[in-house]
Design a protein around this nucleic acid. Structure first.
Lengths: 350, 350
DNA sequence: ACTATCCGCTCAATCGATTAAATACTCCCG
DNA sequence: CGGGAGTATTTAATCGATTGAGCGGATAGT
C-alpha cells in the first residue's frame, strides 16, 4: 500500500505538502499541486483512513446494534440509517446480536442480555464509533441495557427512558385511531378488535387509539368485540371464529397485526363469509404477507425507513453539536401510513 | 479517553509493560500484572483499536456491499455473514448501495453502476478492510463491476467469473430437479412449469433441473405445459389460467417462485379448483408469503444463512492464508431444502 | 570468582497520516 | 537598501498503540 511518504519522495516535496494538496489544495501552488496529483494518480494512492482517524480523533463511523436483522422491520430501518449516514459521509459498523437465537425468547435472561450488550458496546467503543443506534426486534423496553456511554445513542423499534437517549418510534395510538376512524368512515359501527399480547406497549397504545376513535364518534366500546390474541395467525383465527359466531357479529375487524388478520381470513373462509363484502378487515404492519392475502389487506404501514433516517439524523446532530448534557429522553413518534387495499368495503347494513 | 500512557504513569511502569500485560500477560510478573490491571479497571481503560490497527496493519474488518438490503434474501445472508465473522473476531462495515433506487432497474446504466461500486470499494479500501462480500439482490451477473482489488472478494446471490473471486450460490438445477422429482413421487405425470424471465441464469438452471427430472423418469417434456412468466404474481395468474383451460390440464404446477405460485392460487380459486386436492402446486424461494397462502405453499428454501456463513468462512480463509494467486473463480453451490407444506397431494387420477 | 543465561522491564522507533510553527522566498514600499 | 507582508514549503511533534533491542539484576554453572 502506497503512503504519503512515497508520494512525497517521488514528487520531491514534503509529506506535509502532499497532505495539503489532498486536504486543502488552495494552500498549495498550482504547480506543486499538479506535480503531486500526478504522482498520486500514478501510484493509485488511497489514503489510510485509519491513520487519519487516529490523528484527527474522528472515525466518521456509527455503530448499529440490531437485536435481530432477520426480523421484518430491520432491513428498512437499516436502509434508512445507511442512506442518511452515507449522505453525510458516515459509515456503519453492524452488530447483530441475534438475541433470540442466543439467549432465548422474551429477553428473560437479563443478565446475559446485558452481558452481550456490554460486549458489543465495548467493541464499538474501542473502535471509537461516534454514536450508536440500537434497533429493537420486538418493541420491548430496553431501558438500562446499554449503560452510560460517553457517546450519543439512539433507539428505535423499542422503548427506553434512558437519560439523554434518543428514542424514535411510530405513533401506535394515532395509527390505531386513524384506522378505526377509517372503518367508521366506511360506515362501520360494529368494529371488533383483536389485540396482541396485552402486556406490550404497542398493544396498549393501539387499544387506546381504537377506543378513542369510537368514543369521539359516539360509538360504544363493546367488550364482546374485543378479543385478546398473541400476535400469531392462529390466535387471529380463534378470535375471529368467536367474533363471527356472536349473535350480533361485527361488520369490521381490526386485527392488531397482519399475521392475525391472516387468521381472520381463514376463519371467514371457513364460515363462508366474504371479505370485504360481508366483513371488512384491517391489519397492521404492512408486512409482505399482507399484500399476498386474498383479498389484499388494508393495513397500516410502519414508517420504518423514516425511523432509520430520523435516528441517523438526530444522532449525527448530537455528534456534531455536542451541546449541554441532556437529562430527558428525546421521544420522537412518526406517523404511520394507511395502505388502502381490498379488504374493506362500505358497510351496507346500517 | 484514557490511554496506555496514563495507565503507565499511574501504575509507574512503561507503556510497553502495559501493552504486554494486555496482550501477552505471561511475559510480565504476577506482581506488575496485578498492579497494572488494577489501574486499567480503575480508569475503565478501553484500548484504541484504531491505533492498534495502524501499528499492526490489521483491522479485523470486512466490508459488505449489498445491492439492496431490503430485498427478501439480504437479511438472512447478512445474519450468516455476521455470525461467522463475529465468532472469528471480525467486524463488518455495511454498505448498501440501493442499486435500484439509485440507478433505476435492471442494472442498465452500467457506467453509473461501476462508478457507484468504485466509490464504495474505494472507501472500504481506505478503511483497510481485509476482504469484501458482495451481496446481490437479483442474481444478476456482476462480473467485472468490482475491479481488481488487492484483497479477497466473495460474491453471493449473484454471478461472477472474476479472476480469483469466490462465488457462493445455491444449486438451482438440483433444487428444481428435486422439487420436480418430489411431484413425480407424488404420482404426478402432467407437471407444468411456470418460468421466470428466460434470460436469467436462475430460470435456465431451474428449467434444466425440471427437464432432467422428467427425462430421467421417462416423462415427456410437453411444451404446452411450460408457460413463461416474469416472476410477478400476475404472470403466475395468467399462466395458470391458460394451463388450467388446456384440454388436458396438468395435475401439478411448479411455479419458479412463490410470487407466481400466489397467482396460481388466484387462478385456481377463480376456477373453483381446489389445491391440493385437484391441483398440486409448488413454489420456490420460501418467502414469507409462501407460509401465509391458503393452502400453505410447499416450496424450496434457499440456504441464505448458510450462503452468508460460507462466504464469510471462505473469505476469512483467504485472508488468513494468503496463498498463491488464483486465476479461477471458486464456484460454490449449496443445496436448497424442500419445505413440505400443504399445497401438494398424491395424484389420484393416474 | 567469573561468565552465561534468563527474567522482567524500559527505551525508543514505528505505523501513516495531520498541522502548528518555523523557514524560505518574493515582492513591494518608504 | 532594509524591513514588513504575504505566500509556499518544510520541519517536526503528535495521535495511541506495538515491539525489537537493550539493560540491569538474579541465578546458575564451572
Amino acid at each position: 500500500m502506497v503512503t504519503i511518504k512515497e508520494i512525497a519522495k517521488m514528487a520531491k516535496v514534503s509529506t506535509a505538502t502532499v497532505s495539503y494538496v489532498l486536504n486543502d489544495p488552495s494552500r498549495v501552488s498550482e504547480e506543486t499541486r499538479e506535480k503531486v496529483m500526478k504522482v498520486v494518480k500514478k501510484l493509485n494512492y488511497n489514503p489510510n483512513s485509519i491513520a487519519k482517524s487516529l490523528k484527527i480523533k474522528k472515525t466518521n463511523t456509527i455503530g448499529i446494534i440490531t437485536e435481530d436483522v432477520t426480523v421484518f422491520t430491520a432491513p428498512e430501518i437499516i436502509d434508512g440509517i445507511e442512506e442518511y449516514a452515507e449522505n453525510h459521509n458516515y459509515h456503519i459498523i453492524l452488530n447483530n446480536i441475534r438475541l433470540f437465537k442466543r439467549i432465548g425468547n422474551k429477553y428473560k435472561d437479563t443478565a446475559k442480555f446485558s452481558k452481550v450488550i456490554a460486549d458489543v458496546t465495548n467493541v464499538l467503543a474501542s473502535r471509537r464509533v461516534e454514536g450508536i443506534i440500537y434497533v429493537g426486534a420486538h418493541c420491548r423496553d430496553v431501558t438500562g441495557v446499554i449503560g452510560d456511554l460517553s457517546i450519543p445513542v439512539a433507539y428505535t423499534y423499542c422503548y427506553t427512558t434512558n437519560n439523554g437517549a434518543i428514542a424514535v418510534n411510530y405513533d401506535d395510538e394515532a395509527a390505531a385511531y386513524r384506522i378505526t376512524e377509517y372503518l367508521i368512515e366506511k360506515k362501520h359501527q360494529k368494529i371488533a378488535i383483536i389485540t396482541g399480547l396485552l402486556d406490550s406497549m404497542q398493544c396498549q397504545d393501539r387499544l387506546k387509539g381504537y377506543q378513542r376513535a369510537l368514543y369521539e364518534r359516539n360509538l360504544l366500546f363493546n367488550p364482546q368485540y374485543m378479543k385478546v390474541g398473541d400476535w400469531e395467525r392462529e390466535s387471529g383465527y380463534q378470535a375471529a371464529k368467536e367474533l363471527l359466531s356472536l349473535p350480533d357479529p361485527p361488520t369490521a375487524i381490526f386485527a392488531m397485526n397482519d399475521l392475525m388478520a391472516g387468521g381472520v381470513i381463514d376463519a371467514a373462509n371457513e364460515a363462508g363469509i366474504r371479505i370485504p363484502e360481508a366483513l371488512s378487515l384491517v391489519g397492521f404492519d404492512n408486512r409482505e404477507c399482507s399484500y399476498s392475502y386474498t383479498p389484499k389487506l388494508t393495513t397500516m404501514a410502519l414508517p420504518l425507513n423514516e425511523m432509520g433516517k430520523v435516528c441517523a439524523q438526530k444522532l449525527l446532530d448530537r455528534i456534531n453539536n455536542p451541546g449541554e448534557d441532556r437529562q430527558e429522553t428525546e421521544q420522537i413518534k412518526l406517523e404511520c401510513e394507511l395502505i388502502e387495499r381490498d379488504s374493506v368495503a362500505v358497510n351496507r347494513r346500517v
